[in-house]
Design a protein around this nucleic acid. Sequence first.
DNA 1: CGATTATTAGTACGATCGTTCAAAGAAATC
DNA 2: GATTTCTTTGAACGATCGTACTAATAATCG
Lengths: 176, 176
Amino acid sequence: MAGRPVDQQRRDELLDAVVGYAVEHGFAELTWRPLATALGVTPTTLVHRFGSKEQMIQAVQQRLRERIITETAPSDGVDLPAYVRRVWERVADPDRAGEFRLFFAVYGQALQAPETFADFLGHVVADPLAAFAADSDEGTATLVLATLRGLVLDLLTTGDRDRVGVAADAFIARLR
Amino acid sequence: MAGRPVDQQRRDELLDAVVGYAVEHGFAELTWRPLATALGVTPTTLVHRFGSKEQMIQAVQQRLRERIITETAPSDGVDLPAYVRRVWERVADPDRAGEFRLFFAVYGQALQAPETFADFLGHVVADPLAAFAADSDEGTATLVLATLRGLVLDLLTTGDRDRVGVAADAFIARLR
DNA sequence: CGATTATTAGTACGATCGTTCAAAGAAATC
DNA sequence: GATTTCTTTGAACGATCGTACTAATAATCG
């Protein structure tokens, strides 16, 4: 008594397309009709797939976490400065700028609707913190995470790779 | 040939009320009718006062900058560590948490709509950076700003004042 | 006083929002 | 082949959105 099986590949493909649309057009413009038009489907298809807009948003932020937060780990046994440098090079990658802009857009909205984004807020600090704390103490891990996030914010705002790069180098050098 | 004079006090009062509403209800819920109802006026009053919703948003983010970014300056001649500590104590003030949540909500949206928020993005880093750079070099100023912003993000997310406070202390101590 | 401008209100318009409903084709099991 | 489940569609609903228009009242200048 099993009907047509779930097409997981199609579901992942749809979610990735939604995230891509959000990266391009902004988190605030994530509405059924323009999104569906851009994806070449009807709004009903998206509604059926995600259930509701809030559930779709939850799926998007969860995928974002997978793409961004999980990128932090693991350290592969190298020492902390080398580990932090590698993470920095990843998060400062210009190809990732769109993803991080969306990340901070979701983050900002999450801070103003904590109950709706409880999942996001529960992991956005705790997960990378645990990764950094494995190679240092909790205070240093907190500092590393905060500094990296702040530097990325600066980079996304000003685009000044030279100045921000110097600051990142100085920070990493001081970790030794 | 001058008619009734502009009531600047009333205008400031209205803008402050709008910012207060945004702090409470979130940046995403900033729409004419619920806002007007909460403020005890009609939507038309707000439209006439601010011109359009986009102009109102611009006014809100400008007021936010005045409240938050300007709070960073000045250093009053004390050395950098003492200056940074004083700024940290201000931005970590629990009474300011609502304002900073709104700040990061606006910031996140600004990153995804740079042309609309050009004013905000043009000042959000440059202004405090100039304040910190007056007492240090550009690299250190960049690092200080990024770290403070990141620590505030952590604090708003987790509320873990102890852990974040330890990290802030360690950072400031390392500035000497 | 008359002219002018600011402030506030009431009404209404078109657009877009999220969501629901009925229905058709596709892919699996029995 | 009948049944079941997944996928997708088109049409439509009520609600809310930003905004324009008209008008009344208040405060200033000439």
